[in-house]
Design a binder for these strands. Structure first.
Lengths: 208, 208
DNA sequence: GTCGGCCAGATTGTTGACAATCCAGCTCGA
DNA sequence: TCGAGCTGGATTGTCAACAATCTGGCCGAC
C-alpha cells in the first residue's frame, strides 16, 4: 500500500499535476490517493530521498523547485556518469545489441527528417536507456535515474528547443558508432560532448 | 528526536558496531537509542536511502553488505565524480586555498616519511574534502558523501594496505599541482588515475 | 528417519487519537 | 496608521495499542 502511494504520487509529480513549489498537504493526499496518513508520509519520505519533494520539519512537504544552477550541476553529474556508462557499454556490447543501436539510429534520422519531435524525444530516451542496459552498471544507473527524475521539467524544455535535433542527432550517431566500434574512450568523449551541449541548451532556454 | 536517532545509528554502523548482514531489530534499537519505535523506523528509512541499511518488507532491516563487485562500481562512480570535482576545483581555486593544498601535501610527505599511516589516512580525507570544498559542487558532493558511507569498511582496508602510500602519495602530489596550476583537464586526469588505483587495490585486497 | 504442515513467539505493519507547532488574521495600545 | 502580541484553526509530529506476517521448532504420517 505504501509503495502504491509512492508510485501514484511520484507519477503525479512527474507529469506535472503538482507544480514546483506547490505544497503537499498530507490530509489532501490521503483523499487523492485513497490511503492513510501513514502511507502518505512514507511516500513523501521516499520522494524526498529521490529529491522530488522537500520536507521541512513542522512545515510539511512541497514539490522541490530546481533552479538553473542546480539543473546545470545535475546535468554535469549526468555527463560524467553517462560518460562512464557509455565507455562500459562500448566494452561490453554484443553484436545483437550493436544492431539494435543501429536501428535506433535509423529511426532517429527518420523522425528528425519527418519533423516528428515527440517521437525523436522518445527515441532519445530509448537510446540512453539501451546504452545503460548494455553497460549493466547498476550503481551508475540508479543515480542517473534519480537525477533524471529531478529534471523532468527542464529536460522537457530542452527537447522542445527549436534546432535541438540538428545538434543532437549527429552527436547520437557518434555515440552509437563509438560503442559499435568497441571504443570506450571515444564513446565516453562523444557522450560527454553530447551532454555538455544539453547544458548549453539549458542555459540558453533559461535566458529567454 | 528522529534526527538524533538517525545520527546515532549511522555513526554506530559506520564505526562497525553493527557488522554487515547483522539484523537490526526495532525493539532492540529502541533501548539502545533510548527512543520510540516511531523514531527508530524513521532512522532506518533514512539509512536505507543512504544505502547503509536494507529493509525488506515484513522482514526487517539489516546492515547492507557491499560485495566486491558493487564496491568496484561505487568506486568507479566516485572516480568520475571526483574527477569532475577536481576539474572544477582547478578552475576556481583561490591563492589562499592553493597554499592550503600545499600545506596538506607537505604534511602528507612528512606522515609517509615517518610511517604514520593513520595520520596519512586522515590527511587523505582532508585533501579530498578540501578539493570538494573548493569546487563547491553541491550535487556531486552529496553523492560522493553518500557513496563514501557505503564503503567505509573497504576504504579502511585499502588505507591499511602495505605499500599503498608509496602509490598514492605521488598521485596526490600530481592532483595538487594540477589544481594549483589552474589546469582542469590535468586535475581530472590525475584524480581519475588516483581513484583507478584504488580500484586495483580493492581487487588485490579481496583476492587475499 | 524425514518430510510436510502447523502452532506459538517474535517482529514488523498500520491505525487512530492526541500533542506540538505553525500561520494568518485580529485586537489593542501608542 | 502601525506594530506587538494573541488567538483559533489548520497542519504536522509522536505515541501506544492492535493487526498482520514471519520464523523456527514440534508433531504426526509415511
Amino acid at each position: 500500500m505504501t509503495a502504491e502511494a509512492y508510485a501514484l504520487l511520484r507519477s503525479a509529480i512527474l507529469r506535472g499535476e503538482y507544480l514546483p513549489g506547490e505544497r503537499l498537504v498530507e490530509a489532501q493526499l490521503c483523499e487523492r490517493l485513497g490511503t492513510s496518513r501513514f502511507n502518505v508520509r512514507a511516500a513523501l519520505q521516499d520522494l524526498a530521498a529521490d529529491g522530488l519533494v522537500k520536507v521541512e520539519r513542522n512545515k510539511g512537504a512541497h514539490v522541490r523547485k530546481v533552479p538553473l544552477d542546480e539543473a546545470v550541476e545535475i546535468t554535469e553529474v549526468r555527463m560524467v556518469l553517462e560518460g562512464l556508462v557509455a565507455a562500459r557499454a562500448a566494452a561490453r556490447v554484443s553484436d545483437e545489441q550493436a544492431s539494435e543501436l543501429d536501428e535506433i539510429g535509423l529511426l532517429m534520422r527518420r523522425a528528425v527528417g519527418a519533423g516528428e519531435f515527440r517521437r525523436y524525444s522518445d527515441l532519445n530516451e530509448r537510446l540512453h536507456g539501451l546504452i545503460r542496459h548494455i553497460a549493466g552498471h547498476r550503481t551508475a544507473d540508479g543515480i542517473i535515474e534519480t537525477l533524471r527524475g529531478q529534471l523532468v521539467r527542464h529536460q522537457f524544455m530542452v527537447s522542445l528547443h527549436p534546432g535541438r535535433p540538428a545538434v543532437s542527432l549527429p552527436q547520437h550517431e557518434r555515440i552509437i558508432a563509438a560503442i559499435q566500434a568497441h571504443d570506450p574512450a571515444a564513446a565516453e568523449v562523444a557522450m560527454r560532448e553530447h551532454i555538455a551541449s544539453v547544458i548549453t541548451a539549458l542555459r540558453e532556454i533559461d535566458a529567454l
